[in-house]
Amino acid sequence: MTVDVLERNHVQVIGSGSQTIMFAHGFGCDQGMWRYIVPDFMSDYRIVLFDYVGSGNSQIRHYDADKYSSLQGYAQDVIDIIERLDLRDVIFVGHSVSSMVGMLASIRAPERFERIVMLGPSPRYVNDPPAYFGGFDKSDIDELLEMMQMNFIGWASYMAPIAMNSDRPELTHELEQSFCSRDPHIARQFAEVTFYCDCRKELALMSVPTLILQCSDDSIAPVEVGDYLHSHLRHSELRQMNAKGHYPHLSQPQETIELIKEYISRS
């Protein structure tokens, strides 16, 4: 059976311009999380938005536990969308785990990408002492996954304020609701794939120029992770943001917009 990629991933193409910016959401979210960012790029760029299978308005019937048991399955979906739309010179903006998804996709199809913007990225969330600090001990991740298994709603209410780290309660509530709207089984597998991923070896294979946007006081991707990425990614630029938390495109959209625009204007 032929899969309609655009339907599967609820792909939306908007805006005008000869070059494409592809926005990829993070774990527990959907394309709606980019709503404060997209309007500032619509007049100059074609915008591609999508939902990973199991998120937002994607077609959940296409979820395949084997395919999505690694980030390569999600990277394949990104490539599928790009090929279906026949895109070239894509500027890929990935939040959180999508930064690594975009990197993996660009390694497999570098001719399709011009720039990658990584927003709050991490190649590995689990500490690997003494050489690597990812922010979490393995026991921390084990406990989070067990909490998701036992009490998914409780996990969402616990995790949202930590990840958002904002004095705006409406944003924390939105993130919690976004977490809760996911299928618990799919969300748990995606969380396991995300938090146990290790993309450090692939960093050396990355050839596409990259902007790393490192948030301050980010409990998910601490500053050491941004420094590690910058030192291991060729053609990378690291910018420290004033925005706190893991969701600057929601909490500080103007700063996020300005840094992305500044970077791609120099392409």
Rank of each mutant, 00 (worst) to 15 (best):
V3W: 04
R8C: 09
Q12R: 13
G17N: 12
I21V: 12
F23Q: 05
H25T: 05
G28Y: 00
D30K: 00
Q31G: 08
G32L: 12
M33Q: 05
D40R: 08
I47F: 12
I47K: 09
F50N: 08
D51T: 02
V53M: 08
G56S: 07
N57V: 02
Q59H: 11
A65H: 06
D66Y: 09
K67D: 01
S70K: 11
A75R: 01
Q76I: 01
D77G: 08
I79W: 00
E83W: 05
D89L: 03
V90Q: 08
M100P: 01
M103S: 06
L104G: 00
A105V: 00
I107F: 07
R112F: 00
F113W: 03
R115H: 11
I116D: 00
P129V: 07
A131S: 13
Y132S: 04
I141F: 05
M147K: 15
M147E: 11
M148I: 05
M150W: 09
I153P: 01
G154D: 01
A156F: 02
S166Q: 14
D167H: 14
D167W: 11
E170I: 12
L171I: 15
H173P: 01
E174L: 15
E176D: 13
P184I: 05
Q189I: 06
F190V: 15
F190E: 15
A191Y: 00
V193C: 11
T194Y: 00
Y196N: 15
C197D: 13
A221S: 15
V223F: 12
V225A: 05
G226K: 06
Y228F: 15
H232E: 06
H232S: 03
L233K: 00
R234K: 14
E237S: 12
K244I: 02
P248R: 11
H249S: 11
P253R: 06
Q254S: 10
E258V: 09
Y263F: 15
I264T: 07
